[in-house]
Design a protein around this nucleic acid. Structure first.
Length: 566
RNA sequence: CGGGGUGUAGCGCAGCCCGGUAGCGCGCUUCGUUCGGGACGAAGAGGCCGUAGGUUCGAAUCCUAUCACCCCGACCA
């Protein structure tokens, strides 16, 4: 492709609305443009990357015997009623009403695949089947963000497996697990895997393929050493217990006017936050529960709900006064009448500070074993970085990350609801056992860029690069430069490389260099009249910035050798 | 949906408090000079100041409503 003819609108300045690196670079390199919030057009350069990603996905899916479908995005509403997911999706689902017919735009395709399975798969002999498609999904996200990472319309590879037994589902699941690793490895993405319960989807096993990113939406705890990874909502950690002081001081009331937060308390009393027991009141089953955690740590509401076996909510400010006799900031366990749960880290401690259940007063010298009755202990806090991995004891990292792919064992949720059954060896009717496997294709692109860029632009590796080589003719008004670069262009094309040829006559050298670094093809072949006089051209490796002077007649060989190794 | 912010030329922004001829940089067009890290000069083109009401002799500027977009939160098969 000649740049003089191409529609690749690069931007020198950073667009005001883009914050995350991948979003900025995708806009600046002329790969995407926003049409509306969370709705993006892929321009030619960006679409080439999408096609590279989907090609890799296709190859790996086909390699495990999966078969590609092309399904409608426009679906009759009734089919989604069969599984009650119109209600489940709520406002996230786009609805179209036309004349007297109700349609929805598919946010995923379990129902449609199950519909086809229901009509055709009737015997255990017809399974296993793995069906997939790569297509646009529609979800009316409440808040689209980070460019293409969270959009209202996005390209997704979704696959569904149909098996006659749970054992066979395990096999289909394992095939996908392997295929996903291959896909992300080939794309050059550094990922990790979080095992999680599949929650609302129903079913038993699931794995999320995650990428560490500041633009991420999930916070996870991850151990580099053993691979332990869990969403902080469920993550646990090993922390060194804080020992009980040898001597318990007497309980004492301290006047603390206008002291509300732990920080203020620590500053006022000149104590460390680990000496504080912070109180939080939640309402569970219409009854208040006092939760105690150390210092400035946070209550993990998900863990707490799991512990209690039901949903909780923080108590309202007016309720606090009624329950404890004090406002938030002065609440504490001593004298509290209801149920008390303290985090494990506080177990058996003494000489702590806490609220006095009396505004503007705190208590010192609190001894959990002496002063508080009926105290329960549990893990109710949010894991923090540097704490010990529950598996191997190494220090955990805690960071945000993006979910790129998710595989899970659906089981019979959809097949049962929709009556997709088969006859087994005994002639008995059973619901088909399903798995569901998704990859966000544009997210792969965005995450790759998040992981592979520098201050100049994107750094593509060959697998996803829109072109293998950017060929720069530095001064195209000079005949020898124009002729020689044109010749190299044709030779590179003839050798099977995808080449973006910057043949613009009106751009100066510096301009072309900046554009090339921004777009980030793996190799730049630079043709300028100075080196041409010595029968040489320059080759630059984008990733390392290394430059090599190469004899003109050896350029093709040089490029070949490079791509064989990289 | 709650909180905060921004809408002025293709892009980035100033002007708004304190109402009175709509500006700057980049980009674009033409000509000339340059030509290996986002060149220089000269001459141009381009804007209902998001939209709708209102106040006023007069509104980009003040008031009201509304829409769009961004950020934080809630939500997230």
């Amino acid at each position: 492709m000649k740049l003089s003819k191409a529609f690749i609108p690069t931007l020198k300045e950073v667009p005001a609305d883009a914050i995350t690196a991948s979003h900025v670079l995708m806009l600046r390199s002329g790969m995407v443009r926003m049409l509306s919030a969370g709705i993006y057009s892929f321009l030619p350069l960006g679409y080439r990357v999408v096609q590279n990603i989907t090609s890799i996905i296709r190859e790996e899916m086909n390699a495990i015997g999966a078969q590609e479908f092309h399904l409608p995005a426009l679906n009759p509403r009734e089919i989604w009623e069969e599984t009650n997911r119109v209600a489940a999706f709520g406002d996230t689902m786009f609805h179209i009403k036309n004349l007297n017919r109700d349609y929805v735009l598919a946010p995923t395709h379990e129902e449609i695949m199950t519909y086809h399975a229901r009509n055709q798969i009737t015997s255990y002999k017809e399974m296993p089947q793995i069906w997939y498609q790569i297509q646009t999904k529609f979800r009316n996200e409440a808040r689209p963000r980070s460019g293409v990472i969270r959009g209202r319309q996005f390209l997704m590879k979704d696959a569904y497996s149909f098996d006659s037994s749970w054992e066979n589902l395990d096999k289909s699941y394992a095939l996908h697990d392997k295929a996903y690793r291959n896909i992300f490895n080939r794309c050059g993405i550094k990922y990790f895997i979080v095992g999680a319960s599949s929650g609302a989807m129903g079913g038993t096993g699931s794995e999320e393929f995650m990428v560490k990113s500041d633009a991420g939406e999930d916070t996870v705890a991850y151990c580099e050493k053993c691979g332990y990874a869990a969403n902080v909502e469920v993550a646990t950690s090993v922390v060194a217990p804080i020992a009980r002081d040898a001597v318990s001081e007497e309980l004492k009331e301290i006047s603390t006017p206008n002291v509300k937060s732990i920080d203020e308390l620590c500053a006022f009393l000149k104590i460390d936050e680990t000496q504080c027991a912070k109180s939080r009141v939640y309402i569970f089953d219409e009854k208040p529960i006092l939760i105690l955690i150390t210092g400035n740590e946070e209550v993990n509401e998900t863990k707490l709900e799991k512990l209690l076996g039901g949903s909780i909510r923080p108590a309202h400010p007016e309720e606090l006064k009624e329950i404890t006799g004090a406002d938030a900031g002065s609440i504490g366990p001593v004298g509290y009448k209801g149920r008390i749960i303290a985090d494990n880290k506080l177990k058996g401690r003494n000489n702590l500070y806490s609220g006095a259940n009396k505004n503007d007063y705190h208590l010192g010298g609190v001894d959990f074993t002496r002063d508080i009755k009926n105290i329960e202990y549990a893990d109710v806090r949010i894991v923090e970085a540097e704490e010990g991995c529950p598996n191997c004891g190494e220090k955990l990292g805690v960071f945000t990350s993006i979910e790129l792919g998710h595989i899970f064992k659906l089981g019979t949720k959809y097949s049962a609801a929709m009556g997709a059954t088969f006859l087994d060896e005994n002639g008995k009717d059973n619901p088909i056992i399903m798995g569901s496997y998704g990859i966000g294709c544009e997210r792969v692109m965005a995450c790759y860029i998040e992981q592979h860029h520098d201050e100049h632009g994107i750094i593509w590796e060959k697998a996803l690069a829109p072109y293998h080589i950017q060929l720069l003719g530095l001064n195209m008004k000079k005949q020898e430069v124009a002729e020689e670069s044109e010749k190299i262009y044709n030779e590179l094309l003839g050798s099977g490389y995808e080449v973006l040829f910057d043949d613009r006559t009106d751009a100066q050298a510096g301009f072309k260099f900046k554009d090339a670094d921004l777009m980030g093809m793996p190799l730049q072949v630079i043709v300028g009249d100075k080196k041409l006089k010595e029968q040489k051209v320059e080759v630059k490796i984008r990733k390392t910035g290394e430059r090599f002077d190469v004899d003109i007649d050896k350029v093709i060989a040089w490029v070949k050798e490079y791509f064989e190794k990289n």
